[in-house]
Nucleic acid binder design. Sequence first.
DNA 1: AATTAAGGCGCG
DNA 2: AAAGCGCGCCTTAATT
Length: 577
Amino acid sequence: MDGGTRHDRCVHLVLSRVDGGVLATPLTASGEPDGDPVTVADADLPRYVADQEARGTTGGGPLRWVWDDTARWYPSVLAAGGRVARCVDLRLCHRILRTAVATRDSALAAAPDGTWDAPTHQERPVRSTQTQLFDDALLDGSRPADDDDPVAEFRAQLAAVAGSTDPGGLRLLLAAESAGALVAAEMRFAGLPWRADVHERLLEDALGPRVPAGVRPRRLEEIAEVLRQRLDDPALNPDSPADVLRSLRRAGLVVDSTRKWELQRLEHPAIEPLLEYKRLYRLLTANGWSWLDEWVQAGRFHPEYAVGGVVTGRWAANGGGAMQLPKAIRSAVVADRGWKLVVADAAQLEPRVLAAMAGDLAMAAAGDGRDLYDGVVASGAVETRQQAKGAMLGAMYGATQGEGGRLVPRLARAYPRALDLVARAAAAGERGEPVTTRLGRTSPVPDPAWFAARSRAWSVDGTAAMQRAVESRARSWGRFTRNFVVQGTAAEWALSWMASLRGRLAARWQGPLRDGGHLVFFVHDEIVLHVPESDAAWVAEQVEAAAVDAGRILFGSFPITFPLSVAVVDDYGSAKD
DNA sequence: AATTAAGGCGCG
DNA sequence: AAAGCGCGCCTTAATT
């Protein structure tokens, strides 16, 4: 590489691909040049990164790597045993700033769509036969130079934030999102410990011996035969909902679909085996032998996470259904010998976030030091915990019917500030206006057709039917924005939680990621860590401390607590829900 | 043959 | 209890 050049003052190192390697451009905190750029050969990049990281904090502040996509640059560093403390993921940050209300007057928001609005390098379609070539090219330097200048983009982002109506919030949001990108890359790299043998035993117990794809396993075939007899339908294909529905109706059952909860209300000897069939069929198709073959290698499940993949800022996952890992197979997630899993989830995260966001002291008090729903009951607003939960979810989702919807007004009397916040978010959405999370992530607005239909319905040739349809769509969008502010802010809390925790772990373990305790799984309000047995208790403490940090980052000194349930276990299935 | 829609269910 | 939010992904069935 280009000697041992060190940038001793800069706080940003911007990486871009140039002919013949990687260009690292040092910039100050405000984005001004801060020394000469250096060119690093691809093969030397991990060592260069390690060298720069080793400087630690400089006079100007901590070092941040600035790059287009974390998923593009970070894996090679991790593979070489390295780590990065901080980064700016330009593409993720770009997406936030393009739509944020706080930056709506910026040049960045005004520009037409460009390369930074396109999918990531990773996501760009690559023919499957070329996938391997593509990966190799990352290492051998034969890839073409980038045509999008990250230095210019970074400066545009700095300017957009500096000129925004909430620079502080956005800086936190961008830092949290970027930290999330690092966590996602690390979790994908480390993988979730997965015992294929445990999973296989579970499948065999439930379904019978393994069969080739496309063949119905023995247990399913047995149940199918019972169904055919009990419905007197020898040709029934239980895999086809339409076929099943026809058959049920022919048997005299009044039923609109084959949904589980609808079937559960029926009295017929075919119902119980049908529900059992559906349960096992789901296990087979979603997490059966094919899934195991495709997603588990060398004892690890390696899903690809999509940071900010959900409009609200929640993560999604590409492939493997990582965010829908059924409870029924979590017993296959087993810690290595000498290691433990630390499983933690935030209790009633969304109502707590709502209470804090709204500055609702009464609701915050209901959750102080106890289950928040119990606190709601104690306040006298409703009678049972189930009612409290139903009403709270109803308030956050916009329920109008059922028990939840019925109880919302009682909640509104007890917690007017919190309920007012979601009501106002819903009203904004019904008008077609955007809403924002605590840190400034902004909801999309309805597409032009939504507004056009509204205008038509209320014009001279609008009909009552058109108006009803438009109002229904408006209420639907209002339910989305109502939930957006809560779900999105909860996602920010979770990012902050993980970012803080990651920093705490990195302070203790500086070597290769998997040599020390590390995050291996995340689902919205729950995390799993794989940690050396002797350090499990310490890690559990850090998880708690990080939750306190997250509350402070988002809500400062507002008296809200975020209790966790933390379990140190050998397998994920044993962590109580 | 390939794509899209619908039905359904897993997760938070 | 199965409506009220956000998803991914499996299948079958319909469409191009």
